[in-house]
């Protein structure tokens, strides 16, 4: 008999025990380990997915920020360029204004310098011209000149207008001292008489005269009575000329266009008048 029933029973029991033991020591631990590993891998994959999603999110965020930064950069750059342009224009304007101001100042200084030089030259020229004129006239002054002066003086007395004449007559009449007649050279008797006669005729009165010589004068005759003076001399011409030149220079200062000084040589000679007033 090939079948031993005790052995069959024993083998069934052995097999069942073996199934339990194998389940206990092999399948459970192995499957548990595999499950744990799978869970772990799944968890790691989930973490990886999560991290990837986070990374993607951060990447998107970074990209967004980068775009914003670029946009801001472009805007700031554009703004800065505009500001620089405006600032450049402003600085250029300021520099131009400063240059203009400096240029104007320099021109003004130059103009003042030129004016000073002009004035100095004018003054010097004036002084020189008058000095030369005085010297020439003094050199030329002779007795005949005095005689001629006397003639002119007497003619002027005759030619005086009525108002002057009246006021002068009053002065002469009111004078207590003799009327003083001053001349550069000592007048000869004939001329003294001529003057006396002319005065007498002009004012229709006998006017006492006292003659005096004043060599410091250029040339001429003047008459002084009671603080009033009637004169004709070359010095007066010169003074008149000087005044005229000064007025001319004063007038020229106002327009002031030329930097280079120009010496005005032409002077308008004012016709001398018999003047009355305090000496």
């Amino acid at each position: 008999m090939l079948i031993d029933w005790f052995t069959v029973a024993a083998q069934v029991l052995n097999f069942l025990i073996l199934v339990w033991l194998m389940k206990r020591f092999l399948y459970k631990p192995i499957l548990h380990a595999i499950d744990d590993r799978e869970k772990r891998i799944a968890k790691e994959l989930a973490n990886a997915d999560k991290k990837m999603a986070e990374a993607q999110k951060e990447r998107d965020e970074f990209q967004h920020k980068n775009d914003e930064f670029d946009q801001q950069y472009i805007e700031l750059m554009s703004k800065a360029k505009d500001e620089v342009k405006v600032e450049r224009q402003r600085l250029l304007d300021e520099a131009r204004q400063a240059t203009d101001a400096l240029s104007a100042m320099r021109h003004e200084k130059l103009r003042k310098d030129a004016q000073s030089l002009h004035e100095a030259m004018s003054l010097r020229t004036q002084q020189e011209v008058f000095a030369i004129a005085r010297k020439v006239l003094m050199d030329l002054a002779t007795a005949s000149l005095e005689e001629r002066m006397t003639e002119v003086f007497t003619r002027r007395l005759h030619e005086m207008d009525d108002q002057t004449k009246t006021s002068l007559a009053e002065i002469l009449k009111a004078a207590t001292d003799p009327v003083l007649v001053r001349s550069t050279f000592d007048l000869p008797v004939e001329q003294r008489v001529a003057i006396q006669n002319a005065l007498n005729e002009t004012f229709s009165a006998d006017i006492p005269l006292r003659f005096e010589t004043a060599p410091d004068r250029v040339s001429g005759i003047d008459l002084t009575a009671n603080g009033q003076k009637v004169a004709w001399n070359i010095s007066d011409y010169l003074v008149s000329l000087e005044r005229s030149v000064n007025e001319l220079l004063k007038d020229k200062k106002i327009p002031e266009t030329k930097a280079t000084p120009v010496l005005e040589t032409k002077a308008k000679l004012e016709k001398p008048k018999l003047e009355t007033g305090n000496p």
């Binding site: 090939l2 079948i3 031993d4 029933w5 052995t7 069959v8 029973a9 024993a10 083998q11 069934v12 097999f15």
Partner: peptide
């Protein structure tokens, strides 16, 4: 052994 195989078959 037929006893073993029979045990498994059972």
């Amino acid at each position: 052994s037929l006893s073993t195989t029979l045990a498994f078959a059972l």
